[in-house]
Amino acid sequence: MTTRPAAVPSRNEPGNAAPLLELRDVGKDYGTVIALDGISATVRAGEVTCVLGDNGAGKSTLIKVLSGVHRADRGQVLLDGRPVAFGSPREALDAGIATVFQDLAMIPLMAIWRNFFLGAEPTKGRGPFRRFDSARAKDVTRRELAAMGIDIRDPDQPVGTLSGGERQSVAIARAVHFGARVLILDEPTSALGVKQAGVVLRYVAQARDRGVGVVLITHNPHHAYPVGDRFLVLNRGRSLGEFGKSDIDRDELTRLMAGGAELEALAHELERPAD
């Protein structure tokens, strides 16, 4: 079932406005593995919600619930205050939720421009002559990538021949281009150098300033802290809490993410033996 978005709510309305997206006590199992349990979080228009946690903490599972890949087994997902249960990624996309998946969801043997518009192909012509407007698709692809600082020699190049970072940039450019209201990024900076990571974080900030609600997943508190407005920390499928920026500082966030005491123990272990 899809709930189509009503009018775009005004940004940052204090207090009473329902958040764009809200999770209430969400849980998700893979067979007997409890991947998520009791997760609550909010995504507001014009804000960045960061999801942090170690490998296997359940970050990707959480965004797959938001993007319609999985259904929550427990709890509720609310869009504009109304409960929704997306049956497919298509329904989430139609509701204005665009996602950059961790595996990027790109087809290696297909041309860049075909990947860029996959599932949302612009068409021209009518009736039986309706066809993929490839000229426009190539043009938009080149423009959007150039705006990200990626210089594509040939939009006909198969995506599989791009470098990891270039591929990630194409996936992000695609989501930003189609992301109407909510933009979800699963570790968008993992394959990027310092410069490209900066570009992506700037994109996140721009989307936020346009009133988009952003969900940013990352391992890296140094990327999360500067752009984030609220921080959800996961550990083995459970929430360690959702914090506003004023509630937590960067060091505290880092410590929490790494499981606090564990990190201290590690630091101790790694110290040179004092002989």
Binding site: D103, A105, I107, L118
Partner: peptide, 11 residues
């Protein structure tokens, strides 16, 4: 090419 990826972008 990849049916999971295709479905994830709305195909």
């Amino acid at each position: 090419g990849d049916d999971v990826a295709a479905r994830n972008v709305g195909v």
